[in-house]
Design a protein around this nucleic acid. Structure first.
Lengths: 131, 131
DNA sequence: CTAGTTGCAAAGAGTTTGCATGGCG
DNA sequence: CGCCATGCAAACTCTTTGCAACTAG
């Protein structure tokens, strides 16, 4: 949707893609970007535009009432299921073959067509399980 | 957490459990209950109390920025994965055996321990697929 | 030059809180 | 009777919007 690449928008996209394995709150994003002279309203407007555009995804975390955003810019991510760790907050990708198997299982068992792009599985990742 | 069963709280729980296969917005709940003389603040307070208490779950829907709540009062639901239809908004339960298999697959493939109670798979249900 | 984008401030929506009143147990 | 829950209104926080100024193409 964005037409012009302003310096604000550039900084915005840079920041999000550098943190593409994290789920960021609006506040985190705003604070990180105010050094770069991006106003709060620009943050909100860019979030909306990029979400419509499919470049980022809005997600909700377990405990929190806050809204979080995550970068999904590259095509790769669109074919993955996402696993979100409830302890460290990082996101893991479940590759195409694994995801397809899982989705087929649900389809068979329940006659339900899972929407990959919108589904996030929550749990505890390998690293955090060890702690 | 609730100590007294007031008539408001009774109506509140009745309404939610009658609609346990739907995800309800705060607004829907508030409108439905204002006939029964429940103020907006009582709705909010009860939502918080019951969420802490594990009787309801807060979920987020695909397109919307709104917060939704769903009744999960009975023990049965705690052992299920939930499938939420993006068209009709209804929730389907994926029984224990199917859910366990699915969760084991994820654990094997990605070393990730899925948190059943917090995971909702989004997609299109059988009935809506036919339309 | 022109239309999209930004910043600011004000408006709006959603949620929480303080306090006096009322009702459950 | 004591304490919790409620209702109301005010306070807060988060998000959106109008408008003038700016800037990428």
């Amino acid at each position: 949707m964005p037409k012009y690449m302003t310096k604000q928008r550039k900084a915005f996209l840079e920041f999000l893609s550098e943190h593409s394995d994290e789920q960021l709150s609006v506040k985190q994003i705003a604070v990180a970007l105010e050094d770069r002279n991006i106003s709060l309203s620009a943050v909100y407007r860019n979030l909306s535009a990029l979400e419509e555009d499919g470049k980022i995804r809005r997600v909700s975390k377990s405990g929190s009432r806050e809204v979080y955003y995550q970068y999904i810019g590259d095509e790769h991510c669109r074919d993955c299921l996402h696993l979100s760790c409830e302890k460290c907050g990082k996101t893991f990708h479940m590759g195409v073959s694994g995801a397809e198997t899982l989705i087929k299982n649900v389809a068979l068992a329940e006659n339900f067509a899972v929407d990959k792009s919108n589904t996030v599985l929550y749990g505890i990742c390998k690293a955090c399980q060890k702690k």
